[in-house]
């Protein structure tokens, strides 16, 4: 790891100021991806701005929405009675990110800011049509994800909250990479009165994406069988040593059916 200056601001304004003052400053949330990246010397920040003292670790239900503070760890989301009741699919998803140790420290804000193409949270945020609240604005999920490791965030912008609309039904089905246990294919389905949204993580070449064909079919009939015969374009899939593009495309279908079945 290269050395850096460590800053732990006590409020959002100071954090933004520190980030804005230095183009090489980087924010540290849970650090579950960022610290390994630093260890591999793949990133050389001048200042690391620790966001843990900003008071962003909370969960609340407000105005028919589930609001999760950006620095809320996965384990907290997974164990939260509010989340389990209002949006159990999200608790389930959070409870299967990484391992127990990662879930104590990794945060929803960190996951979304990083937008790893095999992270789980982006699938939930996109499928649920959540909004991402930052220190300056709110961003719709459909506008937020802009390809792998790329988001709508400005360099000195900090995610503060994620607002989740509450669906009638939802579920997440993950096929884990056998080695890393990240999502090789993760499918989140969410049924609203207005229709069904489906988001896929892990599989696509450009990070998380919505599956229009699945959404159309499931909006007509929210059953696993509704997905029969609907394929996923192979040429948009990732391929690596763990799975070919056709395999991933196939798994997208399998996991989508499983998610629909789990959503009930």
């Amino acid at each position: 790891m290269y050395d850096f200056t460590y800053a732990k601001p006590a409020n959002i304004a100071d954090a933004v100021k520190t980030l804005a003052a230095d183009a090489e400053a980087k924010a540290l949330a849970g650090g579950m991806t960022f610290i390994p990246v630093l260890k591999q010397r793949l990133n050389k920040p001048s200042t690391v701005v620790d966001l843990s003292a900003l008071g962003l670790n909370y969960i609340k239900l407000e105005g028919g929405k589930l609001i999760v503070g950006a620095m809320t760890p996965h384990g907290t989301v997974a164990a939260s009675p509010e989340v389990k009741k209002a949006l159990p699919a999200l608790a389930e998803l959070a409870g299967n990110i990484g391992d127990r140790q990662v879930r104590y420290r990794g945060t929803i804000g960190g996951s979304l800011a990083n937008n790893d193409p095999s992270a789980c949270y982006p699938a939930a945020v996109l499928a649920l049509g959540a909004t991402i609240k930052t220190n300056t604005r709110t961003i719709a999920a459909d506008d937020y994800f802009q390809g792998m490791f790329t988001t709508a965030l400005n360099p000195d912008e900090i995610i503060t909250e994620v607002h989740f609309p509450l669906p009638e039904k939802a579920a997440y089905a993950k096929f884990a990479n056998p080695a890393s246990r990240y999502a090789m294919v993760g499918v989140f389905v969410a049924k609203f009165a207005s229709g069904v949204r489906v988001a896929i993580t892990g599989a696509g070449q450009n990070g998380v994406f919505r599956h229009a064909a699945f959404e159309a079919a499931l909006s007509k009939s929210f059953t696993p069988d509704a997905l029969n015969g609907i394929t996923t374009p192979v040429d948009e899939m990732n391929a690596d040593i763990h799975g070919s593009a056709p395999y991933r495309a196939h798994l997208v279908g399998v996991m989508a059916k499983r998610a629909v079945a789990a959503a009930g």
């Binding site: 056998p178 080695a179 890393s180 690596d240 040593i241 763990h242």
Partner: peptide, 23 residues
């Protein structure tokens, strides 16, 4: 079932960490 040290054609080890080598 799981483990495989895989080199690509050029000689780079693709399964070069526990993120890619399935323990």
């Amino acid at each position: 079932l799981l483990e495989h040290a895989i080199y690509d054609e050029s000689g780079q080890l693709l399964s070069g960490s526990m993120m890619d080598y399935t323990m």
